[in-house]
Design a binder for these strands. Structure first.
Lengths: 141, 141
DNA sequence: GTTGCAATTGAAAACGAATATCAATAGTAT
DNA sequence: ATACTATTGATATTCGTTTTCAATTGCAAC
């Protein structure tokens, strides 16, 4: 059993929810993806694997995975929404290319620290943040 | 004529678009608001002023004002989308209270500088950014 | 001013992502 | 095994936003 599965089982158990085969299949597939994805991507890929999991269940399960901290919704304002698994990864932010749609991940410790400081100054209890830098990637200027 | 109107007229003229009474009314009202607003707020307030401007026109005009740099869409993921005028204001980011929905504005120069630096490191041409800090405000922890 | 053309408008219909409904199914605790 | 209740899939619905299209109105040329 992978760590993410253990974490998901614990989360569901604590909330009195059930660990179903659909939820396991979605979790495992999400953890196997190393790119961000839309709900439809995920749905199609699961069907190609021979699993018939409904659209509604994919949405419902993603909401649980987000609440549980295994997945995050990307802050870029494109529709449909994009997701990625974050469990087992260090925190990172994103740059979004307005021309080709490429998403570049980055991590910057000073920015993280200053955010914490700004929150404290406003007596604001920070639980998370989203930083997205928009512009044009190396190939697209 | 206020500066924003001059800027909007120039923008429309350059694009071969027309400066209509509806567009002027929306621009002036948006500039008079000192809070973020949803499309429906704007639409209602315009109607209360006795102006019968359609929903569609409000949406269409906001898109122009955003493209022109007078208005921005806020990056908090609440529906419906929130907007604010930015023309004549210094750049700022937002904290969003998950409990009461309050939006706190802030500006932090070091964060801005580090963002620029990160973009340069990735040879990324930054045109803008959105930073939103989520959590609980002073009243809500 | 008048004219002509294309941009703009309003009302309504269409769109699309996401959510709710509900009967059938399947975990889970006993 | 049983009973209870969460979950599922199919479908319908919601709701913010966008498109359609005929009527209107800027605006530039005359």
């Amino acid at each position: 059993m992978i760590d993410a599965e253990r974490k998901f089982r614990e989360y569901l158990s604590e909330k009195g929810l059930r660990f179903t085969s659909e939820r396991l299949a979605i979790l495992l597939h999400v953890m196997s993806l190393h790119e961000h994805f839309a709900v439809d991507d995920l749905h199609h890929q699961l069907r190609q694997k021979g699993l018939s999991i409904s659209h509604a269940t994919v949405f419902r399960t993603l909401a649980l995975l987000i609440d549980c901290g295994i997945v995050q919704k990307l802050p870029c304002e494109k529709m449909p929404a994009r997701y990625e698994h974050i469990f087992g990864h260090v925190h990172h932010d994103h740059m979004f290319c307005l021309r080709c749609g490429r998403i570049i991940e980055f991590h910057n410790a000073p920015i993280e620290r200053w955010q914490q400081k700004v929150a404290e100054e406003h007596r604001f209890q920070m639980t998370g943040h989203h930083l997205i830098i928009r512009g044009y990637c190396e190939k697209c200027h």
